[in-house]
Amino acid sequence: MPSLEELQKDICDAICVGDDTRVSELIAGDGMDPASRLRIYRNHAVITLTDALKATYPVVCRLVSDRFFAYAAHEFIREHLPEQPNLAEYGAEFPGFLAQFPPCHDLGYIADIARLEWAINQALHADNVAAIARGDLSGISSADAPRLVLTMHPGLRLVESRWPVERIWRANQADGDPDLSIDLDSGGVRLQVHRRGDRVMLKSLSPCEFAFLQALARGDSLADAADIALRLDLLFDLAAALGTILEDGIVTGFRLQPPSED
C-alpha cells in the first residue's frame, strides 16, 4: 500500500501525463476501467483550466474560434499547470506560448493580442491603490522637481505592438463592430493599460510619451525620464505629460532622489 504522498504523486502523473501504470491497480473497479475513471478527472482539469484561460483571453478565443482555442489551451495546459489556486494569476506564459505555437505562425498578431489581454487582466486584479493628485506635489520646488521619482500604480502596464492591437481588441468587444475591417499593416501601437475604479482603460501613446512612462515605471527620476522623451521628440512637453499622468490616476506616490554628488 503506497503512502498518501506516493499515491498523490502517482495520481498527478496519471492526470497530467496519462501515465496510470502505478495507480490503476489501486483503484477499485466498481464496474468501470480505472483508466476511464482517471480520464474523468483529466477531462475535468483540462476543461476547467481551458475555461480559466478563456476568461482571461476572450478576444484571442474570439479571433481563433472556440475549437482552435481549446486545442491551443490543451497543448498549453500540458506544459503549464497552475502553481497555485488563484486562477486570475494563471496563464502568464500563454502569450509567449502562442508566439511559438506553429499553428499560429501565420497569425502574428495573436500573441500580441494575448499580451494585451494579460496586461488588462493584471490591471484588473492589481491592488486598487489610491492615486495622488496634482496638489500633493505642490510642496516640491521647481529646483527639486527634476529629482522626483514617482511610484506608479501597481496595475499600470505598458504594451507595445507592431500590429494595430488596440483596434482589433475594441472591434471584438461586446459593443464593437463585427464587420469592421482592420488593415493589419496599418501600423503598430503603444498602449498605456490602467485601472480606473472598476474599469480598465486603454490609451494610445506617442513614442515619446511611451518612453517617458517606461522610464518612470522602472524608477528613473523625472529629469532622466524627460531626457529620454526629449531624445525621441524635441517638442516633448514635460509639464503637460506630468499633468496627464496625474489626471489618469496612475501615480500613487513620490520621493526625491538624493542630490547627485557631482
Binding site: 495520481i11 498527478c12 492526470i15 497552475p82
Partner: peptide, 13 residues
C-alpha cells in the same frame, strides 16, 4: 486534495 506543491489541478480529487 488538489495537487502537489506547485501543481494545482483545479479539481477536488
Amino acid at each position: 486534495w488538489s495537487g502537489l506543491p506547485s501543481i494545482y489541478l483545479n479539481d477536488l480529487l
